[in-house]
């Protein structure tokens, strides 16, 4: 067994631990499955999504969350939201700054004016 194979298996197992408590009861098809309406390759999709979920939880930990908190936060997201993050968590917008809007553009123009006039 190669290391990468073991890694994939362990990710699937961790993913199962995270997601299984949220599955609908056996026999019922969950609403989330009905939502991913195209439903092409639904089963394969689910496995991919499980792996994405652990991957995003791992990345959130790398950005400073505790493992428990990362798990709670990932579980509040839908499959497609997780997929968005899995693709580019480091580049999606992170809303933060609160200074007045025009003032930033204004400050740049002001500096240019003071130095060149």
């Amino acid at each position: 067994m190669t290391l990468s194979f073991i890694r994939i298996i362990s990710r699937i197992l961790v993913a199962c631990m995270i997601v299984l408590p949220f599955q609908a009861s056996a026999g019922l098809i969950g609403t989330d499955q009905a939502v991913s309406a195209a439903q092409a390759a639904a089963a394969r999709d689910r496995v991919v999504r499980l792996i994405e979920r652990t991957e995003v939880a791992r990345q959130l930990q790398a950005y400073g969350l505790t493992p428990e908190n990362a798990k709670l936060r990932v579980n509040a997201l839908t499959g497609s939201e997780v997929a968005q993050l899995a693709a580019r968590l480091d580049s999606v917008p992170a809303g933060a700054n609160g200074t007045g809007a025009v003032f930033l553009i204004a400050a740049v123009v002001l500096i240019v004016w003071l130095f060149w006039s």
């Binding site: 968005q84 993050l85 917008p93 992170a94």
Partner: peptide, 10 residues
């Protein structure tokens, strides 16, 4: 999210 100094939309 401390590492991003902000909050993600999702």
């Amino acid at each position: 999210l401390p590492g991003r100094q902000g909050s993600l939309q999702v």
